[in-house]
Amino acid sequence: MPDTLVEVDDVSMLYNISREKADNLKEYLIRALKGGLAIDEFWALRNVSLRMMRGESLGIIGLNGSGKSTLLKLIAGVLQPAKGRIQVRGSIAPLIELGAGFDYDLTARENIYLNGAILGHSRAKMNENFDEIISFAELEDFIDIPIKNFSSGMVARLGFAIATISRPDILIADEILSVGDMKFQKKCESRIAEIVNNGASVIYVSHSVESVRKLCTKAAWLHKGELVRFGDADSVCDAYLEGLD
């Protein structure tokens, strides 16, 4: 029986632009006195519904500002929807901006444990995977060096290696394949393919229609916060390319 992993049910997301700027008391009071606290509403997503079954992988395509990342953050649980309901069954490994959980004053070794804990892994599990992480990230000579001295490619390699040690049900990837050199990109791609072959589903956000076709079975096309089309990856990608012209 195919079970639903992700269910997005009539979800809308509202950003409130004017209030975001008044982040100190003075500005807030001035605006309040002027009556300028009227809310500039901006709907980043409107009434989006989609579902992903186990074994499927979902690509989200659309132009800049179409709400792709917002949808991803809602699924990852970082944001709460203004309206509607999101249900996720199973574990999520977010590959969103690698290294977001690093403390740059700590060494690679210390960051492996910290970042592992952020992703919900125990110290024992990190010990088990420690050597694999270091060798995948190719950082054998830099284990005890604070990562503020690392190049951005080294940080991304470490982040990717830590994020992919678990075998999650859902892998969320936000254009991460654009980091690192060609050789490392190849390595990342084969690691993702391996996780997918193990039965995980991928939710992938990209501008690149080609990689969505390659990685995903289903696709969702967003435009200005609205779901234009959702369905089979090839047909949605075709329609999207047509729509661009």
Partner: peptide
């Protein structure tokens, strides 16, 4: 309980960073 480990790591980090 699940995040108990993270809490521990965060405390260790706070202390380590302060006296680095």
């Amino acid at each position: 309980w699940k995040y108990n480990n993270l809490l521990k790591e965060l405390v260790i980090r706070d202390i380590k960073v302060r006296y680095r």
